[in-house]
Amino acid sequence: MTGSRYRWFRVFKISGIHATLLAYSALVLFPILLVFMNSFKDQMAIFGEPLAPPTPETFSVDGYKTLFEIANFQHYFLNSLIVTTVSLVLIVFLGAMAGWALAEYEFKLNTFMAIYLALGIMVPIRLGTVGILRLMADWHLVNTLTALILVYTAMGLPLSIFILSRFFAQLPPDFKDAARIDGASEYRIFTLVLPLVRPALGTVAAISMIPVWNDLWFPLILAPSEKTKTIVLGAQVFLGQFLNDWQAVLAALSLAMIPAILLYMLFSKQLIRGLTAGAVK
């Protein structure tokens, strides 16, 4: 147990762990880097030497040029940004209000409401697509970003309420009681406690963001028009239209991946904290 044998065993074990994790990381990064790298090469080099990085002779950004000439990627990006931002604000804010009500007040329907709202965590909203499409068509909301925002808000609220009500329930009562004695209204108290759960708000936003940003289903069905295409749908349609032009295809893939990766880097702290806090019960 003592001495060099143990140390050698430890070194061996740790290098084994690193080797496994390195190998898996390589498997993860390979396809992403491959696509990204080849998007900067000319058609000949893409097919001739797919594994070689671009050289001055093979370097080309024609794919990106086609992309900007034909498809309106800036516009798709803006749509995705609007839909995601507004949905997240609504999910977090309305979720906090409802979560607060469920955690703070005792009323007759409390348990019923909690269960009713939690149903949405277990049942995927897609199964109501037929109803959603008819509702949106009746209200003339098809092909508007509003339709997407409403659906994503409804989709994100159950989890948001669930997580936030747990956080609100953990707040120490002294603070709230002190405020109440000072004669603060319930609304005022809510604005006072909201900053206390800020990390939780960030977590909810980070967790809710991925499915909203990456969704293909609802943009495809509810808002497929050129004006309202999100970046994922835009990329999907573009990929379908330019199957022959690999430079453009690889450029489109890269360009659609980059915003997601940037967002991830920006929010990874909240996201990982959210996941590792056991938030998804």
Binding site: L78, I82, V86, V89, L90, V92, F93, T146
Partner: peptide, 15 residues
Amino acid sequence: LTGALALAAFLMATF
């Protein structure tokens, strides 16, 4: 939050 909401609403309206 309300600021962000207002900004988003404004963006949406103009858009």
